[in-house]
Design a protein around this nucleic acid. Structure first.
Length: 264
DNA sequence: CGGCATGTTTCGCC
DNA sequence: AGGCGAAACATGCC
């Protein structure tokens, strides 16, 4: 999915729907429980939050909708896509790719209010999921506020590659493939390093790279806006920091890109 | 046509 | 029991 940064961009965009009452709901039952529709209809949106990569829409009557975007899911709010073009996904927006539609009262728009959903999730690849009252208890600490203590605890006695563990939402919540590479790039850590081989100061470097770097990427537009952009990754350019050719390998089933010069 | 893609879940195998 | 790694899922694009 879209990583935690994209979920945060969408969460902020959802501020305009808070306080509205849902007048009609529809879901693609292949990716959402059908009872969600009955729960949503007539409910008021109390808050829109985020946990890791999951967007949470809190309703009155103590129910929460959890939107998980998979690899190609995206959100459209009042007919406007906060993230126009999603990397590695289709640029099209076909109605038959819609997985969730929430219509609300009190639209600011007048003549389109009948047809444009306040919240619409569109996902060509259908790897995303929409849940009712999602269980978020298995998520690890939030990446954007990650402390070295939290990370050290999460990595204790783990021998898998650090890159693989950073992608595990139960270890750290919110990091996807691009952000994990970006964080390790700035922390100066080789993604293949077994987690239990990291010294304390290296764990600290990873945690502070999360806290320092992720907000910068967020303000720039999300996980594609770091130093290791999709273009740099695809062309395997030279390291933007020290000019040597970047390395690429599959780690934990995902493409990792790193600099062998400054990531050790 | 082959291969690849911001992700999660499942299934064997230690 | 639980960690680990590969495969599966589903579809569009280059």
């Amino acid at each position: 999915m879209p990583e935690g940064l994209e979920a945060e961009i969408w969460r902020r965009a959802c501020g305009v729907v808070v306080g509205r009452t849902i007048t009609d709901a529809w879901v693609d039952e292949r990716v959402a429980p059908s009872e969600l529709v009955g729960v949503a209809r007539g409910a008021r949106i109390v808050e829109v939050g985020r946990s890791g990569k999951v967007l949470t829409i809190s309703l009155d009557r103590d129910h929460v909708l959890g939107l998980h975007f998979g690899m190609t899911g995206r959100l459209v709010v009042d007919g406007v896509a906060p993230i126009e073009r999603l990397e590695y996904a289709s640029g099209a927006d076909r109605a038959d790719w819609d997985r969730l539609r929430l219509h609300t009262d009190s639209h600011t728009q007048s003549d389109t209010a009948d047809t444009v959903p306040a919240i619409r999730m569109n996902d060509p690849r259908r790897l995303g999921r929409i849940s009712l009252d999602p269980d978020l208890s298995a998520l690890g600490p939030e990446a954007v506020t990650l402390t070295s203590g939290e990370l050290g605890t999460a990595l204790a006695r783990r021998s898998a590659a650090i890159k693989t563990l950073l992608l595990d939402q139960g270890v750290v919540a919110g990091l996807g493939n691009l952000c994990a590479d970006e964080v390790l790039f700035h922390a100066g850590i080789d993604p293949r390093r077994p987690a239990d081989s990291l010294a304390e100061r290296e764990v600290e470097a990873i945690a502070s790279a999360c806290r320092d770097r992720l907000p910068v990427m967020l303000e720039r537009g999300g996980s594609t806006c770091g130093d290791l952009t999709p273009d740099v990754r695809a062309r395997l350019d030279r390291c933007p920091l020290d000019g040597v050719p970047l390395c690429r390998a599959t780690i934990g089933g995902r493409t990792a890109v790193w600099c062998s010069q400054h990531q050790r």
